[in-house]
Design a protein around this nucleic acid. Structure first.
Lengths: 128, 128
DNA sequence: TTAAGTGCAAAGGCTTTGCAGCATA
DNA sequence: TATGCTGCAAAGCCTTTGCACTTAA
């Protein structure tokens, strides 16, 4: 456990939700200028391998990372205001069990991403 | 509508499930050597904009594309051999309805991604 | 004919890696 | 002290873009 890794983990713990490598680098190097891109990416791969963080493909350009969540965890992303709502439900587990049985597919990771309009933005859309 | 675009759409229609740009280029240029990477990517962006195809980041390295599917569509990605299995089930619709009601979230796009071991790779894992 | 599409090559982003020096245990 | 980690810089991929030429309508 090095100072760099400790620092990066702290940034993750402070973050509310997923962040990308760029943001991780930005926040970490703001607190310790010597932190390099190489260390950021090497640590991300390490944390991922250790199961400390999840890697998601939220945008085309780059991956997002966040402290590991439960399997029943979903993200609702508002395409209007960008708000991210975290959401958990037993139906996700049912879905996983279904896949396991119908396809003999041994699920290790679930990534559910729903895009649309949140209550607020959808309401405003109706008005116009 | 150019010959190149027609050819690329044909490759999509023949493909069983999502393919990435590399595979699209491979198959297209096998039938018409003059097809270039620039045209492949420019066409992908056009098709996406027209709503003909969906773009998903199924693997970390690159995006996958496929003819637009229903909302109940899911992807199972084998972390061992990389195979991508398409899968549909009514539970996805139930999930969407749940989100709609419980969070007043107006869902426009669903992206469900399950990672794990396919039947074949999981079987081989057991042996060792 | 002419606006739009194409190929080529170069550039742009994100991520990985070789290597020498440094720090943790 | 010895293994493992780091920073730097360069390289590796995937994707986009400028430019001159070609093609579909």
């Amino acid at each position: 456990m090095t100072t760099q890794r400790r620092l990066l983990l702290e940034v993750f713990q402070k973050a509310q939700g997923p962040i990308d490598a760029k943001e991780l680098y930005r926040q970490a190097s703001a607190r310790d200028q010597s932190v390099s891109w190489a260390t950021v990416y090497r640590s991300l791969n390490l944390f991922k391998q250790l199961g400390l963080i999840d890697e998601r493909r939220l945008t085309k350009a780059r991956c997002s990372y966040e402290i590991k969540q439960s399997m029943e965890h979903m993200h609702l992303v508002c395409q209007c205001c960008g708000k991210i709502i975290d959401f958990e439900n037993y139906l996700v587990r049912k879905l996983v069990e279904l896949v396991r049985h119908e396809h003999h597919f041994n699920v290790t990771k679930v990534d559910l991403y729903l895009e649309g309009y949140c209550a607020k933005c959808d309401g405003e859309k109706e008005v116009h």
